[in-house]
């Protein structure tokens, strides 16, 4: 997993006013549309899945890893539960956790980034130094360390991933803020004597929506990956929850006998991350395009 080219975006960022046209501009890229279709497909499965599932996610319909059982499409999983049902049930937890941790991380990072970028001086210096230290901790290792100590809890998964996003988002938003701070309207607002928090909330924030949206997309892609990998390592959601990451962990031993139980969630995760990344790429291209005034 790695970042789309957002580096150059951060610096010049939000000179164009609102990010409203961003979506339209992004939609112009064919890849974005493909990304939206892929993502929508997986989201649909995840959201509607539980309604369509033929069985309860915990009832037994087959022997462990048995395939070709009457009444099932893909056979049984490691305990003999219906693979299709588990698959249909296992997506929304992943989406929810990923969305929550990305949202929280971007929120926290934005606050820190805007404050640091606007205040400047020693506050900025201090915040960014701490930020650099947080950045130095590899994301997955940090998550594993905390999970192994406190134990896998749902809120903890969200908190740990959000915390690891925070410094990364802050860095980008700070750059964008610094560019905005130089603008006339900010200077004007300061001259009128608006309180600082109002300036940050109503003058700066709306003008960094471009990088903000790109960050959100990017962090969402990462979050999906991290939530999934935690599940795969057995450090995420715990049995008997139906969860795509966990499903891969539980069923990988039987991969050769019963490939569906692994292949379905693996395909879904791959499709989702690819879709999210294509959208993010579209957004970031659009943001750069707007900056350069070429918005296609």
């Amino acid at each position: 997993m790695s970042a789309p080219p957002i580096e150059d975006l951060a610096a010049g960022a939000a000179r164009g006013r609102r990010g409203g046209g961003l979506f339209r501009a992004a939609w112009g890229h064919g890849r974005t549309r493909v990304g939206v279709v892929l993502t929508a497909l997986v989201v649909l499965v995840a959201v509607l899945g539980p309604l369509l599932a033929p069985y309860s996610p915990t009832e037994f319909v087959a022997r462990p890893f048995e395939t070709g059982v009457d009444g099932t499409v893909f056979g049984g999983d490691n305990r003999g539960r219906d693979v299709l049902t588990r698959f249909l049930w296992g997506g929304w937890t992943l989406l929810l956790l990923a969305a929550a941790s990305a949202g929280l991380g971007v929120l926290a990072g934005t606050v820190v980034g805007v404050v640091a970028g606007y205040l400047r001086g020693w506050a900025d210096e201090a915040i960014m130094r701490v930020n650099d230290m947080l950045l130095a901790f590899p994301q997955l290792i940090a998550a594993l360390l905390v999970m192994s100590i406190i134990g896998p809890r749902t809120w903890l998964i969200v908190a740990v991933i959000a915390a690891s996003h925070m410094p990364r988002v802050a860095r980008v938003i700070r750059e964008a803020t610094r560019a905005v701070v130089e603008q006339d309207y900010v200077k004007a607002a300061e001259a009128v004597g608006l309180p600082r928090w109002r300036i940050m909330a109503f003058e700066i924030l709306p003008n960094v929506t471009g990088p903000l949206l790109v960050e959100l997309g990017l962090r969402l892609t990462y979050s999906i990956g991290v939530v999934a990998v935690l599940g795969f390592l057995g450090m995420g959601l715990q049995p008997p929850t139906a969860d795509w990451g966990l499903m891969i962990n539980e069923n990988r031993q039987g991969m050769l006998v019963q490939p569906w139980a692994v292949l379905l969630p693996v395909t879904a995760i791959a499709t989702l991350t690819i879709g999210a990344n294509l959208i993010t790429d579209g957004l970031s291209r659009a943001a750069i395009g707007i900056d350069r005034g070429v918005g296609k």
């Binding site: 997993m1 891969i248 991969m255 690819i274 990344n277």
Partner: peptide
């Protein structure tokens, strides 16, 4: 690169196993 960058590495690994490995 967009596609490979997006997919978590363990997913890539599993797909490789299913394609080139015993699967």
């Amino acid at each position: 690169t967009l596609v490979t960058a997006a997919v978590p590495e363990f997913v890539v690994g599993i797909l490789l196993i299913l394609a080139l490995g015993p699967g």
